[in-house]
Simulated assay, not measured.
Amino acid sequence: MFKKLFAAFSAKPKIRADAPYGTEELNTVHNMLFADDAGQLFGDSPDVRVVQAIAQDPNEESRVRLLAAQWLRANGHMPPSPEVLGVVIEVPLDGSMDTLAAYADGRVRYINQTGRIAVFEGAPPDVAEQAKALVAMAIPAFIKAKQPKPAFAPGAGQLRFTFLSQDGNRVTEGFFSDIVRDELAKSVLEQGQRLLDLVVKQGNAQ
């Protein structure tokens, strides 16, 4: 995926960040990767203590913990001990986009530019461990990042890292040449490439 960034891209109109794909189904899957819309997950009047317990439970799914933290922030409660629990890497390609998401619990989601989706629920072990390594490597880059999630998808020839934190998501993005000059972002990219290689290998083995 990332090697394709060396190719030249023509300028294209901006695409909304919540609708980068050609179908509603794919856009819904894509939006869920960021775990930043709690919606009706916790009902109208949940017990704050229960939501806080979910947010800090290391045995709970990472995306559910992020949604719990999002609900807490939206309702005036700070999440206890905010953590970085995921990273989403987006690369626009040929009028579509490759999206790779990794979570601290070892889960992985990948949407290929063709629309094909790969889902890994904490297995196989090499994929899960690499997902965890990617998230761990993303923590220093998250601390440095300041930009909130933009309203538009990354532009042609760029890539975007969205760091998923219980304290709110942050973004680092730029052209490939910019990313490789940033040691923190470069390390995230390298770990992401390792994870993508494993994901593609699993797909080819099926």
Score class of each variant (00 low, 15 high):
residue 61 E to K: 09
residue 17 A to E: 14
residue 31 N to W: 01
residue 23 T to E: 01
residue 98 D to M: 04
residue 11 A to F: 01
residue 47 D to I: 15
residue 17 A to I: 06
residue 39 G to F: 02
residue 82 P to A: 15
residue 107 R to C: 12
residue 68 A to G: 03
residue 66 L to V: 13
residue 63 R to G: 06
residue 51 V to L: 12
residue 100 L to A: 02
residue 45 S to F: 15
residue 92 P to M: 06
residue 86 G to F: 07
residue 107 R to A: 15
residue 11 A to C: 03
residue 70 Q to T: 09
residue 13 P to Q: 08
residue 51 V to H: 02
residue 75 N to P: 05
residue 82 P to T: 08
residue 22 G to Y: 00
residue 37 D to Q: 14
residue 88 V to K: 08
residue 65 R to Q: 14
residue 80 P to H: 06
residue 95 G to V: 09
residue 88 V to L: 13
residue 16 R to S: 15
residue 85 L to P: 05
residue 104 A to D: 15
residue 106 G to E: 14
residue 20 P to D: 00
residue 10 S to Q: 01
residue 98 D to P: 05
residue 80 P to I: 09
residue 60 E to S: 11
residue 52 Q to L: 15
residue 35 A to F: 08
residue 27 N to D: 13
residue 46 P to K: 14
residue 28 T to L: 07
residue 107 R to L: 12
residue 45 S to Y: 15
residue 57 D to W: 12
residue 103 Y to Q: 08
residue 95 G to I: 10
residue 35 A to N: 05
residue 99 T to A: 12
residue 102 A to F: 02
residue 90 E to W: 01
residue 12 K to F: 07
residue 65 R to W: 15
residue 80 P to G: 03
residue 66 L to A: 08
residue 63 R to M: 14
residue 41 L to W: 03
residue 61 E to H: 04
residue 28 T to P: 00
residue 13 P to W: 13
residue 21 Y to G: 01
residue 29 V to H: 04
residue 21 Y to C: 01
residue 59 N to W: 07
residue 84 V to M: 14
residue 54 I to N: 04
residue 83 E to C: 04
residue 77 H to D: 05
residue 58 P to G: 01
residue 48 V to K: 11
residue 27 N to P: 04
residue 87 V to T: 09
residue 10 S to C: 00
residue 24 E to P: 02
residue 26 L to H: 04
residue 90 E to Y: 03
residue 59 N to I: 05
residue 106 G to H: 07
residue 34 F to N: 07
residue 106 G to C: 13
residue 17 A to D: 13
residue 19 A to E: 04
residue 107 R to D: 10
residue 81 S to I: 05
residue 87 V to M: 12
residue 74 A to M: 07
residue 19 A to Q: 04
residue 96 S to A: 05
residue 30 H to L: 09
residue 64 V to E: 14
residue 39 G to I: 01
residue 91 V to E: 05
residue 96 S to G: 02
residue 52 Q to C: 05
residue 17 A to N: 12
residue 14 K to E: 06
residue 26 L to P: 10
residue 107 R to F: 13
residue 21 Y to Q: 00
residue 76 G to M: 14
residue 28 T to M: 03
residue 29 V to A: 06
residue 33 L to K: 07
residue 80 P to Y: 09
residue 51 V to E: 03
residue 76 G to H: 10
residue 10 S to E: 04
residue 108 V to Y: 00
residue 76 G to V: 13
residue 101 A to D: 10
residue 26 L to K: 03
residue 105 D to A: 09
residue 44 D to F: 08
residue 18 D to F: 00
residue 42 F to H: 02
residue 91 V to K: 03
residue 86 G to I: 12
residue 29 V to S: 02
residue 44 D to E: 08
residue 88 V to A: 09
residue 10 S to N: 00
residue 72 L to M: 05
residue 66 L to C: 10
residue 67 L to D: 02
